[in-house]
Design a protein around this nucleic acid. Sequence first.
RNA 1: CGGGGUGUGGCGAAGUUUGGUAUCGCGCAUGGUUCGGGUCCAUGAGGCCGCGGGUUCGAAUCCCGCCACUCCGACCA
Length: 478
Amino acid sequence: MAKEKKVEQITDMEVDFAKWYTDVCKKAELIDYSSIKGMFIYRPYGYAIWENIQRELDSRFKATGHENVAMPMLIPESLLQKEKDHVEGFAPECAWVTYGGGEKLEERYCIRPTSETLFCEHFKNIIQSHRDLPKKYNQWCSVLRWEKTSRPFLRHREFLWQEGHTMHATEEEAREETQQMLNIYADFMENVLAMPVVKGQKTDKEKFNGAEETYTVECMMHDKKALQAGTSHYFGDGFAKAFDITFTGKDNVLHNPHQTSWGVSTRMIGGIIMTHGDNNGLVLPPRIAPTQIIIVPIAQHKPGVLDKAAELQASLQAAGLRVKTDASDNSPGWKFAEYEMKGVPLRLEVGPKDIENGQCVLVRRDNGEKTFVSFDELEAKAAELLDAVHEGMYAKALKNREDHTYVAQTLEEAKAIQEEKGGFVKTMWCGDLACELRMKDEAGMSSRCRPFRQEKLSDKCACCGKEAKEMVIWGVAY
RNA sequence: CGGGGUGUGGCGAAGUUUGGUAUCGCGCAUGGUUCGGGUCCAUGAGGCCGCGGGUUCGAAUCCCGCCACUCCGACCA
């Protein structure tokens, strides 16, 4: 019996990372393909992860004064076209509804690729006075973008997400909102998903269509590629002007409100898989795992074993943990492999020998460590171990990022690092688009962000040698 | 959207070159057996061979078109 490789159905990530990824998505029963390219079926286990993500984020949104709404799915073409940069960015990947009830429509409708325009139309109707501000809305929905290539979770044509849209009386307040939401994302990813993030601002080239500023949280995957896990945009009053949204201020003068939007999607699940997964399958962060503890009874036909398993499940559930017992006829070894593949953070083994000794075994998914725990301290120990699994996963992911983040002083150096090692490359940058394009052309890397945590690596831009403004992190992105 | 690869029961494959009754392993069902790392045995069910045309007495196999998956680019959350 192989010690390292316990699940034969999954391709090793060192052999073929892309195949490993799709194997995990399918074998862990997260997702299935549908008959339409880029449209995926979220299976119960995959959807349960999304529901847990939703629950965690939604409570954070509510705690900061946001309200949920539901907007229409269709956008009239005339509405989409009101903001020039926005429509230019999204028009190429829109899908259109042209028939209704068998009749050709007067005006075609875009299936929402994002809902800024819909929110703006609505905001125009409901905002009159400074007393109506701020408006802090969010919606959980799916959006459609006609992508050319697709991969489970990472790039769908239809994907689930949340989009927050807010309107504020002052620029200062809108900017604060933008930062607050970015921080909520960062905190959520690190403390719930165990994914370390780099916070920063996008370059003009990479920012959202129509935004003044785009902020991002960037993560590094196992294959050293970057994943943009969430974004928060400051719009200024550009959309407000385009949509003629005004309010009367305390000064009895008409003003345009300042706007933000921010979103994360099911792409984060792809991030979880590629940040934490291993050659035995998925490894789920305990705080969003649909099942946190799987109880595997040993010699379950023997009297008392299943009763004890049920008793342990009940007491763990009473302690607020998500627990299941697998009492199927499959052998214990089969069950071990199955729940490893599904990434369940802790396995609890209990058999006749354990019952005699008044104990059971807890096994960590992240590192395989076994702990014997007496029944009377099980709830406390299980909760403690779940936290330890979270911390272990975070530390491992952080180490991966730090081990594969490099400094380059020149474009040639950056290119060499990318070709030989991959990962994040930090360089100084003058701020010119031309240098950013050269980095893409010659080193194959796009700018991931201008990190908030700046370092002064030198005085000169790595590309052109002119005076540098700031440090940029470059990488190959999903 | 350009270049390569692939498509055969739920999964993984053989068969395609040279047209001639649809194969194997896993899984599934039933019964028994076993249980601390994917137990073992027996019996059985399940296939529009990606889809649509064409050639032929006859097509999984040859020809044409399309679709999907996948890898490498370009584009994008």
